[in-house]
Design a protein around this nucleic acid. Structure first.
Length: 809
RNA sequence: GCCGGGAUGGCGGAAUGGUAGACGCGACGGACUCAAAAUCCGUUGUCCGUAAGGACGUGUGGGUUCGAGUCCCACUCCCGGUACCA
């Protein structure tokens, strides 16, 4: 049993904060604002420990920044469209809306029981018409500006279930429901033209206070490369194709060319060739594979088309292959292959017995296969002797002079495919008219309400297609019979702007009031899982830039400071509902209370790193709170009023050093060591109280302790604050400042090493000089013993911490 | 495969290139108790040694340095992402 009735105390303060509207805020130009958001969750039904970790960090920041004098906005919402609700509906027949709203109700209760402070007036949920109305509006704006377009693209298709599958539903190339081999089917689908923003998305990464690893991942994902595109003529025909290469300098080393299996030229190329059947079978197989399988090393495969292309730099004939390690989605879908300088090409050439010509001289100690580094060009006629960059430039010049190629910039980033052949998502507000073509739904007709249907399973067409009342409409342009778009939007569309809606969440006239958004944006802190490092964060940046271009948002970047937390693991696997290893917070709140649970989350390890959930961990933080409680409620020792002694000054100095340490740790987002420092203070305080505390000192140390605990274990801290009779409600109190005079340490332990090994220690004055330190170190009994009869070659002195005596041989 | 990250006692973890293992869990010993729980006190990296003390020790192999968990090179394994999980 805990030393205090956490259940009663926690409920009491949760109610108090709610009635006092402590976390409900409005724009206030007089105060500095702080906009703090945790990534909104998918309502999966139960809070898991990853959520608790997230909201514990978020709430710590909210409360800490409030104590620092900021007008803090901390809202909450739900990413409530998505696949799981639809799957549940297919399995159980429960409507996805009912299912989702039940889950939301359940999770809301759990979140409130954690005691995290949110402005619930701004709560939003993506599946509500009041929200997805503006998804549709956003789509129309993108369409108006030519940033939404329709094009054919493949989807995963299970022929047995006659349904479209998400990548997640394809396991080892098989349908995860029935085990049938999954195929690809081409469907006409909507894309957002994020590639128009590629350069800006890359450039604006500079200057963000983001973890370096996330910036690197985004930079690599956008994948800007400078290279050269040129035309390759197919021998004995008038066919030709374009290739893109980042290494035009290696053109003389081209010994084959490769087309992606989906390349439009392929059918014409293999038509009538001996290999036609083999090639067609290969193409079918390649289309069935996932991209990851296709580009994986080790089993590169392809087929020779029987045709040759002409290498424009030297007129050599090179065989044309079809191989699935070349992707249609990148560059031109065709490459010149230079096995001497590219490992993938090397692997392929080795497997198929193709010539390898080195065109860059590797260093003499090079032992690898393909050499991708810099060096003088060889076997390359007019390039010979040039270093890589010069050779690149000269080749591009040569291509441009001949009019067969040009220098160009390429991005790895592809346009964002937003069409989903699913029920539980936002309807795309477009109408297909046989006379007028694609016609947008007029803004005044929004929202296009999501219809109720009976069969949620995506069959040969999108589920929404099964509702004739939904599909059949009058064309807004000509009034004739027309049909609605039946695909829904990727849920990443919902999550790419929700943080803007929080600023004006109940606006039913517009997506938001730009003035309110301009007050709150950008987010001063965004906290979420590291698994969102690329997709969500990139899409949100894109949409923010788009709305900024419309003049509706005042910033180019939505998330000024980002924190990505590591994932909580449970014996070797990520916690997720699908893996059935979710640990909910409920039983820990029942047995130890929300504060002890929150504190354990802060203590479990560095926030950036993953952590393994330990069943007993909460015991430790719970015992810590108990100890503080006992001291604060006078159960330890008999404090009295008396003159100040060294012991009193000692504990007070420790408290101030702890304030300094905890403040630093919070500012650099490292909470485990902050909690450890508070535990150390509590241990010292307990001994101090037992050995006879001075009342005034004890109260002051406790006061500082409660202030520091306030953002971490808020109910506990508030209750003791009130019981001790300290003034006001703790949440409104200012964060403590350490007294510099109390931070100075007078003596330190100096380490004495011989050849880098610790041989003795000495307590010295913190202001000891180098000469004094050296003399003192050489004079200790142990050191005299170690150095006796040896030559001292050198002494490294770093006063007051260390002396290293180099003896050697 | 590619991109990003990680590896330190029995366990979670701490450590501006300068005392490896803070803080906590667990375990062991003790106090209190009829007993147990709770609480409190102590011990706790490994090996040798009665002790004093010593040797070894941060995934593996090299390197830089007076000094490396920390920096560099090459690996191994684990985790996240890989564009329709969110």
């Amino acid at each position: 049993m805990a030393a205090y009735d956490f259940d009663a105390i926690e409920l009491k303060w949760q109610k108090r904060w709610e009635t006092d509207r402590v976390f409900n805020v409005t724009e206030d130009p007089a105060r500095p604002k702080f906009y703090n958001v945790c990534m909104y969750p998918y309502p999966s039904g139960d809070l898991h420990m990853g959520h608790v970790r997230n909201y514990t960090y978020g709430d710590l920041i909210t409360r800490y920044k409030m104590m620092r004098g900021f007008n803090v906005l901390s809202p909450f919402g739900w990413d409530s469209f998505g696949l799981p609700a639809e799957n549940a509906a297919i399995e159980t027949g429960i409507h996805p809306r009912t299912f989702t709203e039940t889950q939301i109700a359940r999770m809301t209760q759990q979140i409130k029981r954690l005691g995290a402070g949110y402005d619930w007036d701004r709560e939003l949920a993506a599946h509500e018409p009041s929200y997805y109305h503006w998804d549709q509006w956003l789509f129309l704006k993108l369409y108006e500006r030519g940033l939404a377009y329709k094009e054919r693209a493949p989807v995963n298709w299970c022929p047995k279930d006659a349904t479209v599958l998400a990548n997640e539903q394809v396991v080892d190339g098989l349908c995860d429901r029935c085990g049938t081999v999954v195929e690809k089917r081409d469907l006409s689908q909507w894309f957002f033209k994020i590639t128009d923003y590629a350069q800006r998305l890359l450039d604006d990464l500079e200057g963000l206070q983001w973890p370096e690893r996330v910036v690197t991942m985004q930079r690599n994902w956008i994948g800007r490369s400078e290279g050269c595109q040129f035309t390759m003529q197919v021998a004995d025909s008038d066919l030709s194709f374009e290739v893109y290469t980042t290494r035009p300098d290696t053109s003389f080393g081209m010994t084959f060319a490769v087309l992606a299996p989906e390349h439009p030229l392929v059918p014409a190329l293999i038509e009538g060739q001996e290999v036609q059947h083999e090639a067609e079978a290969y193409i079918t197989a390649a289309r069935a594979a996932t991209e990851i399988e296709r580009v994986a090393e080790g089993d590169k495969s392809g087929v020779f088309t029987g045709r040759y292309a002409i290498n424009p730099v030297n007129g050599a004939l090179v065989p044309i292959y079809i191989a699935d390690y070349v992707l249609m989605g990148y560059g031109t879908g065709a490459i010149m292959a230079v096995p001497g300088q590219d490992q993938r090409d090397w692997d392929f050439a080795t497997k198929y017995g193709i010539d390898i010509i080195r065109t860059v001289q590797p260093p003499s100690d090079f032992e690898g296969e393909a050499y991708t580094g810099d060096g003088p060009a060889i076997n390359s006629e007019f390039l010979d002797g040039l270093e890589m960059d010069a050779a690149k430039a000269k080749t591009i010049e040569w291509f441009e002079a001949k009019g067969i190629g040009y220098g160009t910039i390429n991005f790895r980033l592809r346009d964002w495919l937003i069409s989903r052949q699913r029920y539980w998502g936002c309807p795309i507000p477009m109408i297909d008219c046989p006379d007028c073509g694609l016609v947008p739904v007029p803004e005044e007709d929004l929202p296009v309400i999501h219809p109720d249907i009976d069969d949620y399973a995506p069959g040969g067409r999108s589920p929404l297609a099964s509702s004739p009342e939904f599909v059949n409409v009058d064309c807004p342009q000509c009034g004739g019979p027309a049909q609605r778009e039946t695909d829904t939007m990727d849920t990443f569309v919902d999550s790419s702007w929700y943080f803007l809606r929080y600023a004006d969440a109940s606006n039913d006239e517009a997506i938001f009031d730009p003035d309110k958004v301009k007050y709150w944006m950008p987010l001063d802190q965004y906290i979420g899982g590291v698994e969102h490092a690329v997709l969500h964060l990139l899409y949100a940046r894109f949409i923010t830039k788009f709305l900024a271009d419309m003049g509706m948002v005042g910033v180019q970047e939505p998330f000024a400071r980002l924190f990505t937390q590591g994932m909580i693991q449970l014996e070797g696997g990520k916690m997720s509902k699908s893996k059935g290893n979710v640990v909910t917070p409920d039983r820990f709140i029942e047995s130890h209370g929300a504060d002890a649970l929150r504190l354990y989350h802060l203590f479990i390890g560095p926030p950036t790193e993953g952590a393994i959930w330990s069943e007993r961990g909460v015991d430790g933080t719970s015992r810590f709170l108990d100890r503080v409680w006992r001291v604060a409620t006078g159960e330890v020792g008999q404090p009295e009023s008396r003159p100040e002694t060294d012991a009193d000054r000692g504990i007070l100095a420790l408290a101030h050093r702890t304030v300094e340490k905890v403040t630093e740790d919070i500012d650099r987002f490292v909470f485990n060591t902050a909690v450890a420092a508070l535990m150390a203070l509590s241990n010292a305080l307990t001994s101090y109280a037992r050995d006879g505390a001075r009342q005034e000192t004890l109260d002051e140390v406790l006061r500082l302790m409660l202030l520091m605990l306030s953002p971490m274990a808020p109910h506990f801290a508030h209750e003791l604050w009130e019981r001790k009779g300290f003034a006001g409600m703790l949440v409104y109190h200012a964060w403590p400042e350490p007294d510099p005079a109390l931070l100075v340490e007078e003596t330190v332990t100096m380490v004495i090493q011989i050849d880098g090994k610790v041989r003795d220690r000495l307590d010295v004055s913190a202001s000891i000089s180098a000469d004094e330190a050296e003399a003192a170190a050489l004079a200790t009994e142990k050191i005299v013993g170690w150095t006796d009869g040896k030559t001292i070659r050198k002494v490294i002195v770093r006063p007051p911490n260390l002396v290293n005596i180099v003896v050697g041989e």
